[in-house]
């Protein structure tokens, strides 16, 4: 049983009780992914599995045999920050930084969902093309809490990323 973490294969834990979050942090020493509530309420542990955002605290690692996980450590390329990481810096998208890895992984997953046309709770017409207004971004990012209150900067940073994508 093996799993790909940021492109490198790793052996899954023997004990099925180990969450994907604890596996990343305690076994692989990838401490970028954060443990906030450990009960699926805060989003700090968000990682990407095959490009989809999930909560690693509610995921048993064994259940992800053969899957490809991307964590915050896997986003920069060749020492260059991912555009969203850079945007978080430029827009003051954090204070303490604890929720940041989860926010960034979540936003990357969110952009993928929007690109394929997924609607949200605040989408007026479920059959129309997606427009990522500020309200849409807030709703789509509601699974990631920031206790410092940096949400406005977070949404600004994500807004810059999705705007750049649309322009590209």
């Amino acid at each position: 049983m093996s799993i790909s973490i940021n492109g490198a294969l790793a052996e899954l834990p023997q004990d099925p009780r180990v969450s994907l979050l604890d596996f990343l942090r305690e076994d692989l020493h990838l401490a970028g992914t954060k443990k906030g509530c450990n009960q699926g309420a805060c989003g700090a542990c968000t990682v990407l599995v095959d490009g989809e955002r999930i909560l690693s605290c509610l995921a048993l690692a064994v259940q992800y045999d053969g899957r490809a996980v991307t964590t915050i450590e896997g986003l920069a390329e060749g020492g260059v920050l991912h555009p969203l990481q850079q945007a978080f810096i430029e827009h003051d998208g954090f204070q303490c930084g604890y929720c940041t890895p989860g926010q960034i992984c979540s936003a990357i997953g969110m952009a993928t969902e929007a690109r394929r046309g997924a609607a949200s709770h605040v989408t007026a017409d479920l059959t129309a093309a997606v427009t990522l207004s500020r309200e849409e971004l807030q709703e789509r990012m509601s699974g990631n809490l920031c206790r410092c209150g940096a949400h406005n900067g977070i949404i600004d940073a994500i807004g810059e990323m999705v705007a750049a994508e649309l322009a590209a």
């Binding site: 989003g43 999930i54 509610l58 979540s106 709770h121 479920l126 699974g143």
Partner: peptide, 19 residues
């Protein structure tokens, strides 16, 4: 079935709905 689509989108968070 917009009633079903809207109910799903009103539930949990995107991460949890993906799982």
């Amino acid at each position: 079935y917009p009633v079903l689509g809207r109910a799903l989108l009103a539930g949990a968070s995107a991460q949890i709905r993906n799982m």
